[in-house]
Design a protein around this nucleic acid. Structure first.
Lengths: 359, 359
DNA sequence: ATGAAAGCGCTAACAG
DNA sequence: CTGTTAGCGCTTTCAT
């Protein structure tokens, strides 16, 4: 008797609609003849419901194609999003290319998984035109800022959000927790090692190129300071350090810069690299020259062992885990804290004189 | 006269609270004597405002410590979150440990960065007790599912959300786009290569252990199929394949399984590994035996070149980029599509007989 | 160019 | 154990 078309004047019947409007919690409630609160409880507080009722709710929800409370809406209501933002001061694509960054993220993930928090990776600063970027638009409950340059506008924007924040490998900032490693000590150990081996003139392949003086990266400054400290301690007959800055942390850069450095300064017999990635390139450049040049990397990535590359080991993954934990504490209302993790020199063939691996 | 505690019966006064309440768009509007709409426009539609007004709004906002519209609230209102969920069928910590996964994610990031979308990494299925996990609770506008087992309950939950979805290295599912590689062809080329070299009996280090028959991973099935096809094509004098499944994609597993396989089957002279990571372990095991055993990996990670490891190359990063692009298209209303990327065998010392690198 | 009004979909008190 | 009520903070027509 009723026509196929919806009678006019009648408010849209949620059930009959079929397509178009998405199914909401209210629809489920209406279909069941219960209140929205009951449906909500079925999802969020199973104990507030008779199992029978809950089962029914879930069944009807499934029938209607309702896949649970809208995360955005529930997040708004609850005042939290269930995600943590991770900021990396470079393109995301680049972050994944850097084994150290991946390792770090793995550690963060490990710490956060247990808490049921998702990881929101925030895209590069440069990738967006500019202005209040993804940072202000990210629905997160806290931030981890990994290796950002001091004074980066990003950091300001981030702090401006007033959310719990953990800084990693950076200079401290009020209100935020800080997780770092003893970069000074690690670098000093590396340089000292080469000096003790009798090398008098050392080349440095530095990170953070582009901008002068390490581009504002604290880790770069600290490592440089460490190299220099070792030199100073070694006394006056250590002739000095020749430094070149890599524009990017790639093997290609490492190879190119090492070659250039060795060409310009034939008396250099040892190379201090601020990353294993650079060092891998350096190894290649060094391999082709006639003379033996010692190479020490930084990070002690898995590849270092394979290549017999001496390197300054830092607990990268553990650092991520610590950062995650620190954030959890901050979110739980704890006070900001500072953690400094140790570094350790690992000596392998690339500096001790045995023949290094192929490449 | 009034006690320190709030007088009963009176609703909390939002204004007088001083500390505690966060600053909202409304507060800014009130402070300026304009409507909320104007403040909103200042952030979202600069062209709808006189620059002067806009400047003022932004200034006052800064003064009040307002850092822009709440992402959750604006997301709810607009109906989108500005993030894309990436699902990996294993712990996140594990994803970052797998170089191939990192490479893939880098590609995804590259494709998505331009669109201003954030990447939400969804934690492991196993890490949460169970039940409707982070998947249903993730505020995202679309999904990329990377290398999930066929029939995984996660996939169902994901599809249930009704969001645009791209499947990667998986069996097709209605409504979702699919990005994959020619795993069959790659594996067949690898096996054929060893057979042509005269190896008659081959060992296989398979991925996806734990569950029988590849644990439901399409890539594993396809590769196995490829290996077998090559064997069949090689005729009856190829004695066959001995297979062992790795419980995890680690060098340790590779080493252990390779050793076991070679011990059990002394006539095996070639090893087909389903990942370079496994292959690296295999290389180690092979190095210690007296006889030469050819090894071919899979993925052609950067480390493969370093080690002289023959490997099936797949455009992992590009695959990520394609997946990102496919999702963008889906979100823009496009129809689901399927992409299959090529694989290619790279022959290096580990299979051709020259002495492989150290390790 | 700006303001008023109406929710987006949900949850947390509290009252029954 | 369940229902009622009142927003969370924002954007967006639609008027003005």
């Amino acid at each position: 008797m009723a026509p196929a078309s919806k009678p006019p004047g009648v408010p849209a019947l949620p059930v009959a609609e079929g397509r178009g409007r998405r199914v909401t919690l209210k629809d489920v409630a209406r279909a069941l003849g219960v209140s929205p609160a009951t449906v909500s409880n079925a999802y969020n507080r199973p104990d507030q419901l008779s199992p029978a009722r809950r089962g029914e709710v879930l069944r009807v929800a499934a029938e209607l194609g309702y896949s649970g409370p809208d995360p955005l809406a529930s997040g708004l209501r609850r005042g939290r999003s269930g995600a943590v933002g991770v900021l990396y001061d470079a393109s995301l694509a680049y972050a994944f290319a850097d084994p150290a960054a991946s390792l770090f993220l793995g550690g963060v993930a490990r710490a956060l998984e247990g808490a049921g928090l998702n990881l929101l990776l925030l895209p590069a600063p440069g990738s967006l035109p500019q202005g209040r970027g993804a940072l202000s638009a990210a629905g997160v409950d806290g931030f981890i800022a990994y290796s950002c340059r001091d004074g980066s506008p990003l950091l300001e924007e981030l702090l401006g959000r007033g959310l719990p924040t953990v800084l990693v490998d950076q200079s401290p900032l009020p209100g935020a927790s800080l997780v770092g490693v003893d970069d000074f000590g690690g670098a000093r150990a590396a340089a000292r090692h080469l000096l003790e081996l009798g090398h008098r003139r050392l080349g440095v392949l530095a990170l953070g190129g582009g901008t002068p003086a390490g581009g504002g990266y604290r880790a770069v400054r600290e490592r440089l300071r460490g190299y220099r400290a070792a030199l100073t301690e070694a006394g006056p007959d250590a002739a000095g350090l020749e430094l070149l800055e890599a524009g990017a942390n790639t093997r290609q850069q490492g190879e190119r810069l090492a070659r250039e450095l060795l060409l310009r300064h034939p008396d250099i017999s040892g190379l201090l690299c601020m990353s294993d990635v650079l060092a891998q390139g350096a190894l290649r450049a060094v391999g082709e020259g006639g003379r033996f040049v010692a190479v020490v990397g930084y990070d002690d990535l898995p590849a270092a062992e394979l290549l017999g590359l001496s390197s300054v080991s830092q607990p990268t993954e553990h650092k991520g885990e610590q950062a995650g934990r620190a954030l959890l504490e901050l979110m739980a209302g704890g006070a900001p804290l500072e953690v400094t993790l140790p570094t350790r020199l690992i000596v392998r063939a690339s500096s001790s004189g045995a023949t290094p691996g192929p490449g």
